[in-house]
Computed example of a mutant assay.
Amino acid sequence: MEVENEQRLMDEIRQGNKDAFRTLVNPLIPKAYRTAYMMLQSKPLAEEAVQNALIELYSTIVSGKEINKLYGWFSRLLAHRTVDIARKEQGYKITVDIDGMEIQDAASTPLESLLRKEQSERLFESIITLELNQRIVVGLYYFQELKIEEIAALLDIKEGTVKSRLYHARRKLSATLQQAQGQAKELTI
Rank of each mutant, 00 (worst) to 15 (best):
F21T: 01
F21N: 01
A46D: 13
E48H: 05
E48L: 07
F21P: 07
D11Q: 12
L24C: 07
D84S: 14
A86L: 13
G72N: 09
P27R: 12
R87S: 13
L78Q: 08
Q15G: 09
E12R: 11
M10N: 09
M38D: 10
T60G: 02
L24P: 10
I55V: 10
N17C: 05
R22L: 08
M39D: 14
M38R: 14
V50L: 10
E4F: 08
E12L: 15
N52D: 13
N68L: 13
T35H: 11
F74E: 01
I55F: 07
Q15Y: 07
T82N: 07
L54V: 01
M38P: 01
R76G: 12
K88T: 11
V62D: 00
E4D: 13
L77V: 09
T35M: 13
T35L: 10
I55C: 04
Y71F: 02
R34D: 07
R34M: 12
Y58H: 14
E12Q: 14
R34C: 11
T23P: 00
E12V: 02
K88Q: 14
M39C: 14
Q41G: 07
T82L: 02
K65W: 02
K88N: 13
Y33G: 00
K88G: 05
H80I: 11
G72M: 00
A79Y: 04
I61M: 06
A53G: 09
E12I: 00
R22E: 05
G64F: 06
N26E: 15
I13Y: 02
L28V: 10
M10L: 04
S42A: 12
I13G: 00
A36E: 15
G16L: 11
E6I: 04
I67R: 02
N5K: 13
G64N: 00
E66H: 13
E4R: 09
I61D: 00
L57W: 04
Q90V: 14
